[in-house]
Design a protein around this nucleic acid. Structure first.
Lengths: 363, 363
DNA sequence: CGACCCATCTAAATCGTTTCAGTAGTGTAC
DNA sequence: GTACACTACTGAAACGATTTAGATGGGTCG
């Protein structure tokens, strides 16, 4: 009766109050054909009036499924919603998950707090873009649940979704080379979780912990070296985080260089937007004074001034595939995604031929 | 042994394999002080070698808590990640949730599928921006769990987070009036879930199902009427969805009107960006030919050309408050948020005085 | 009339934990 | 030598549902 009643009403309470067995009450909810319509109606009604609602934990325990899939992304939940790339991925994943009538449990994986992974009431995991050496993956594997990894090196027995980051990065670099650029800089995503932001030595460039970062860096390098450039001379700025502000820091640093690069390869669109801001602050025109290429092709790229030339990766598809693979794994059906999802160059307004003789800031 | 083993190893298996009681194994995990360090170590080790990991459902059932909070937003999970406003809210909420060491369960509330709410293994709910008459809220209340409503009319006994939408909208309209605009149009968010998009009659304007929409509309109206304008003469376009494309449709329709409005009040920044696109397509300059005011102040507003004049609402704070209130409710501590969170006008580059004698499209 | 079937309902086991209330056994204090 | 405290462990009862294997009683069929 009282709304404030502490003890939750259980199925047993409903049964008792009607003088029927718990099994019958359960059947009233889950198997209407197992009892007479009249009794069922009476049960449902008293259940309602008693304020009964079944306990999902108990039901899940008995039935052997939790009714949700777990998603692991960044350390902090915030980033899951702050990063537009993650957002698009989640949209795709979310679509599949909700079609399967499941919920989506976002699991923050804080340092020293793997317990949350262990405690997550889920039927499977999607592990998205976490550092390769993260202990988290071990905790996930220990759960022995159906699991799909995304942007992660292959793990025996686990379905995976990966994108042709290498090819995409190479196309980006080739595009600049074809336009005639030779002084090219790279604004890279972070190599370690504790990145500080700054120019990265060759040595530091060899320790990236994210598969996507490794592959994109390799792609840039491969194209530039094929064109005869010396990679050791290519300035590579490593951001501290994939944020616009950090991209701006990197952009400003690049603009200070002399000779100044005529083009920048940015490892994410976010970072490229940061470079835009840096240019605005320094009065550098894009693409006249500086060409900029992004990566990811988030929707906003089409709306900036100028629209951003970037590498498209099929983020929505990526999420859809992750979802499909996970559902198949949960259902025990065999399903695999062979090969990499494609990337492609989208030329917009932020790239152009380098101006003749330009090399110093023009004010 | 075998990774493919069907039957999960349970705590009982571990106990049996060591000849100790299940209680002791449980203690090894949860109460190290209850047994000798040597035995504990032995238990943990065999547990690991047996591939044991505790069942969260069973643990939750016994302990009486689920370890997650449920979040209800739009019908479709997609929108939760597609809408930047929701994203910022979730960032705030996520921060509190993860500090409390909980997971965040996104619950899609599909039509006829309230069951997901009933099945969600959570310790509490945050109900964010759902239609006032949605049956979902009943399902949530039936769970009798700690619940916080956001952007929703007050419900007896439930903590709530609301924003001064009315005041914000009024400021937006007043800003335009002060600049000298008299022919002002409104591009409104949808009034019902099945909105088609189109100009809204006065009658239709009276049925909005979202609290925020009601209040913003009232705010616009209040300011315009106070300035002596006849609200019945104010064109109000209702979008079908809060998407850029829908805003564009509305914008195009507004630009067709004659006399053409000199300013548009947009109920969201998304919609305002749509109007930007419409103007680009029609060669209308902002703010010279048309002033545009948005609502929400998402970060992108500062980066568009021109930067968008808009109403700031504290989205992150909203999420933080929702989180705090929910945590307090779960812990049984009393905590309330009195009053509305403030909104404020942020003047950027999309508004200006109307040009003399302008009234027709200029091409 | 006996056999069989059907619809309706129930008793009891089960899911995998945690926790309460003990039980030994050892050491300490008086 | 008794009382007491403490450590290390265990048995069994929860937690709240679902499910399997019947029980019961009536109706149908040959």
């Amino acid at each position: 009766m009282s709304v404030k009643a502490k003890g939750k009403t259980s199925l047993k309470d409903v049964a008792r109050s009607l003088g029927v067995s718990p099994a019958t009450v359960s059947n009233a909810f889950n198997r209407p054909d197992q009892l007479s319509p009249e009794l069922r109606e009476r049960i449902l009604q008293t259940a309602r009036s008693l304020g009964y609602s079944p306990d999902p934990l108990a039901r899940g325990l008995r039935r052997g499924r939790a009714g949700a899939v777990g998603v692991l992304y960044a350390d902090r939940l915030r980033y899951t919603f702050a990063d537009p790339v993650a957002g698009l991925f989640m949209q795709g994943l979310g679509q599949v998950v909700e079609e399967a009538n499941l919920g989506m449990l976002l699991v923050p994986k804080r340092i020293n707090q793997e317990s949350l992974v262990a405690q997550a009431a889920v039927d499977g995991f999607v592990v998205y873009s976490i550092p390769n050496n993260s202990p988290t993956i071990q905790t996930v594997l220990a759960r022995r649940l159906p699991t799909v990894v995304v942007d992660y090196p292959p793990i025996e027995g686990l379905p995976a979704v990966n994108v042709d980051d290498f090819g995409g990065a190479r196309q980006a670099a080739q595009h600049l080379l074809e336009l005639g650029h030779r002084r090219i800089g790279v604004v890279s995503l972070e190599y370690t979780v504790d990145a500080k932001g700054g120019f990265a030595s060759l040595e530091r460039q060899s320790i990236p912990q994210h598969t996507a970062v490794v592959n994109r860096l390799d792609g840039y390098r491969s194209a530039l070296e094929a064109a005869g450039l010396d990679w050791a001379q290519v300035p590579v700025w490593e951001v501290a985080e994939n944020l616009i502000e950090e991209g701006e820091r990197g952009g400003l640093a690049m603009l200070e260089l002399s000779p100044r690069p005529t083009a920048l390869l940015c490892m994410s669109d976010q970072v490229a937007f940061g470079v835009y801001q840096a240019c605005r602050a320094r009065g550098i025109r894009i693409p006249e004074d500086l060409s900029v290429v992004g990566f990811d092709d988030i929707p906003e790229t089409a709306r900036t001034a100028p629209p951003l030339t970037t590498i498209h990766q099929p983020l929505l598809d990526k999420g859809l595939w992750a979802g499909r693979l996970l559902m198949a794994a949960i259902r025990g059906e065999p399903l695999e995604l062979s090969g990499l999802l494609p990337t492609r160059l989208v030329v917009r307004g932020s790239t152009a031929r380098p101006e003749e003789g330009v090399g110093q800031p023009n004010r």
